[in-house]
Design a protein around this nucleic acid. Structure first.
Lengths: 205, 205
DNA sequence: GTCTATAGCCAGATAGAC
DNA sequence: GTCTATCTGGCTATAGAC
């Protein structure tokens, strides 16, 4: 890989700072309530400068989602490197990581309804590529976990995949945090338990 | 109760039509993407006339939520009238009803992040009153189901309550509908199963 | 590439006649 | 209470100087 010039490194660092701000603001207020002015103010540059780096608000959101998917893949790699772990344990670890990210207020979430945003995401190659990679690698583990009897084999793998994905925007952690009576770790364990064992709980197993 | 005059009845009917439109638009596009112009056009009146009935966009959303909670209470009453049913069966029936409403595209959902909306809801007495009623009546069934061993007794009842509430805005049904390969009834059963028994499924019971 | 200043647009809310 | 026409503010995006 070619070495980056100093100018390019500066550029890269600045863009990282932008995407990190976007990530936090998306986690905080969501796409519709996040304004480009806020992002610029948070990064500490002028709004017009922002638009030199990213052509639209949608592109900002897409960049934040790409960053999230890259981190997700890193966690997947990390779990894949545990030879002693079962597929189910890997899926559980990934889901726990996502929930921890969420209770820490660092999980960006996009409205699935906004059509201009959807259009831009569906045209974003890096995003689609990463989404496909994540889906495929989780898909393998899901099938393995079903074969091992750890996941209900009558569920289509896509149902399992979406159910795991949905933990990233589960409103339950936010509600429990708002109540203010429980630790983040406790909240994560409860939500993870209801995801894996349902309301009935793991008692009978 | 005093009989309503003819004028009052007309008013009531019109407001019902407004709230029904809001309900569908909220289910369709969500609060942020729903415009007051659309609501007016959908009802077939001028925007200014809308504002004679409801003082703000937030008030429109609140009215839709009040309607939803009233219907929820009606379903709760209906379940309470089944003497042979267990608390768990009643909770399950209510959750199934909510999921059916969602796949039918009739479940209004509000962004939990919007603060002006939250403020207006928290100041809306009828809404709060109904929310409290629903929570208390479900809370009773939850405690009973825990005592009967149907729900994990180590979960705080509020965790169970929020988990059930969250089925109303679960993104999984919408994703599965978008895939277009499954019937609405099948989708409801899968999501209900993952809610009650988790990914592991009911096999071991 | 950074800034200040502003264009252009859209949506929530209102004025005022009827 | 209904309408048409308009106000107002905030937001995305851009022009143009440096």
């Amino acid at each position: 890989m070619a070495r980056l010039s100093f100018r390019e490194q500066v550029l890269r660092v600045r863009e990282d700072a932008i995407v990190e701000s976007v990530n936090r603001l998306l986690a905080d207020k969501g796409f519709d309530l996040m304004t480009v002015d806020e992002v610029a103010a948070d990064v500490g540059i002028a709004k017009a400068s922002l638009y030199k780096h990213f052509p639209s608000k949608e592109a900002l959101a897409a960049a934040a989602m790409v960053r999230l998917l890259q981190r997700t893949l890193a966690v997947i790699d990390q779990q894949a490197a545990r030879p002693e772990a079962t597929a189910m344990q890997r899926l559980e670890a990934l889901t726990r990581w996502a929930l921890e990210l969420q209770v820490a207020g660092e999980m960006p979430t996009l409205p699935s309804q906004n059509s201009s945003l959807r259009a831009e995401l569906m045209a974003h190659r890096a995003y689609l590529e990463l989404l496909l990679q994540v889906s495929e690698r989780l898909g393998e583990w899901i099938v393995q976990a079903q074969a091992a009897g750890d996941i209900d084999a009558t569920l289509p793998p896509e149902v399992v995949l979406y159910t795991i994905f949905a933990r990233a925007c589960d409103p339950v952690p936010a509600f429990l945090k708002a109540a203010g009576q429980h630790s983040n770790a406790q909240i994560v364990e409860w939500v993870l338990s209801t995801c894996l064992h349902g309301l009935h709980g793991p008692a009978a197993r």
